[in-house]
Design a protein around this nucleic acid. Structure first.
Lengths: 151, 151
DNA sequence: CCTATACCGTACTGAATTGGTCCCATTTTA
DNA sequence: TAAAATGGGACCAATTCAGTACGGTATAGG
């Protein structure tokens, strides 16, 4: 099972790409090319991200997209939530009211805790980090590699 | 967005219910009634859990299901994986080979770390804990109750 | 030995979600 | 005024998923 939808996945990739070129104003077409993702879908994702205030679009000739805020102030949680909606582990995490079992079901508090752990993990990573070239993680051979391999 | 499929959600509920009555041998029908879940679907989930070696079924009159192992030795991660398959955050977490971006995409190592955090969180909770009555969380009146009631 | 019970495996269906595309309006630059 | 680009929809095909149904097999009890 894969947690993120493809759209959210794309969103993160595209946003990270924007983050790694803060100076450039990039069109949906350019972004699609450089990330090797389907163009129309990238355009769709960008609209969603723009709606959420994560990227800012400029219309007209010479227009395109840029991050609306500093890459270091945008978390993965925000990007994912913009596209897939608020995350929740179990049904009752989101549709708590409509759960007939809520009174006697013992699982709820546990799901809530796991929810928070996931939320925290996604909130802890910013687009700035996400945009760091993989080299930054694999270049220094021994120590660093071991560290990232067993976090 | 909800992470677990309904089936996996059901699986956890049913397994936890079995865990809370270790002595009883319960039929699919009984489990469905007591958890207030659709009967046929519960039966389906139980088959999957049996296949994964989490519950053990006994055929024939007087048959039914029981946990195949001690509730304290079965983690949520195991139950969820049995039904929804191995968990992965992004596409590349699971279909790494088919990702054309793998060479230059900087997001991979981050996803991997988040993956592990989620896996750890799910592995840390056992069916024994999951089966603890909500009372165990709300019994102590003031402090405890307030904590669980405002999620 | 026979019957009722209950799991096992699997196939099927209807519905919902999702990835992806397309079109048209609006804005901006040249 | 024309070209370039986002904005905002609607739309479609395909996959996935929840839920059901059915025939087969094993077990207990009389």
């Amino acid at each position: 099972m894969i947690i993120l939808s493809k759209l959210a996945d794309y969103g993160v990739i595209v946003a990270a790409h924007l983050a790694s070129h803060p100076e450039r104003m990039m069109t949906a077409g350019t972004l699609a090319q450089e990330t090797r993702l389907p163009r129309a879908t990238v355009a769709k994702v960008l609209k969603t991200l723009a709606h959420a205030g994560i990227v800012a679009g400029s219309r007209g000739a010479g227009g395109g997209y840029r991050l609306a805020r500093a890459a270091s102030s945008v978390s993965l949680a925000e990007v994912v939530a913009a596209i897939d909606g608020a995350i929740g582990v179990a049904q009752c995490s989101v549709h708590a009211h409509s759960c007939e079992r809520s009174e006697f079901c013992p699982t709820r508090p546990h799901w809530r805790r796991i929810n928070e752990i996931i939320g925290t993990a996604l909130s802890a990573v910013t687009l700035a980090e996400m945009a760091l070239a993989p080299r930054a993680f694999t270049a220094e051979p021994a120590a660093r590699a071991a560290e990232t391999r067993a976090p």
